[in-house]
Nucleic acid binder design. Structure first.
Lengths: 120, 120
DNA sequence: ATAACATATGAACAGATGTTCAAATGAAAG
DNA sequence: CTTTCATTTGAACATCTGTTCATATGTTAT
């Protein structure tokens, strides 16, 4: 076993102690990574993805979305609540009906990235 | 109910029928949207996000990652399996140890997009 | 006021998900 | 072969998640 091998395999405690302490310093704080995961978790449900996709094209009221996706209005409303809390959609009231739309262009970009990854 | 009522759209049928049929035609097929959601679901867990983040910096073996994240090697292995199946990480064997690394640059881009959305 | 309608909400349930634990591979060394 | 080490795997468990159902809120019209 030569010197290089010895460096790589370490002595017993850890396999690559230098690498570990080096990477440890560059890690963003716990909370940010948690928030990041939480953001992606929102996109990680096909009902929500469909809602966002549908809102790509136009603002829409709850019952429109419900019919488009052939789901109950309640289910859609629950998911819109999640999307609202994550600031991914916004809404405006017009009489009895409430129109939802995408909050900003990041949604488009993020979903676009996902599409690109799939089409390979 | 009579015919006149039916024609007048007051029957509770739909709020915006034209919009619905228009958007309906532009919808990608069900399966693609499902796959898209599934891709994002992978990013939607903080353990997996941390693993990916750590692999930004260097290829690493399972026990390194486990120590960096202060988690059991088993938990890490289970998650690496998920990431492997989604083609987000790749690996190579070198003796007893297995080195994992990012499969391609899409991972970086997608996570980057998420970061951008958060920092607003 | 009441009725009709669009949406929201809470509780409950089934199914999915992440971690742990114990045991099983698989590879190198003695 | 046996031991040791790095990793994988399966089952069990507790937690989380999405939908449904029934009910509540809020708005407009009668």
């Amino acid at each position: 076993m030569d010197e290089q091998e010895r460096m790589e395999q370490g002595t017993g405690e850890t396999l690559h102690p230098d690498l570990i302490s080096s990477v440890n310093q560059d890690m963003p704080d716990e909370e940010m990574l948690y928030d990041l995961a939480e953001l992606f978790r929102i996109f990680g449900d096909s009902t929500r993805i469909k809602i966002l996709y549908v809102l790509f094209e136009a603002e829409m009221c709850v019952c429109d979305i419900a019919e488009l996706l052939r789901m109950t209005q309640s289910a859609i409303s629950h998911q819109l609540r999640v999307l609202k809390q994550s600031k991914l959609v916004k809404f405006r009231r017009e009489g009895k009906t409430i129109y939802y739309s995408l909050a900003d262009d990041h949604v488009r970009t993020i979903i676009g990235m996902g599409m690109e990854h799939l089409c390979e």
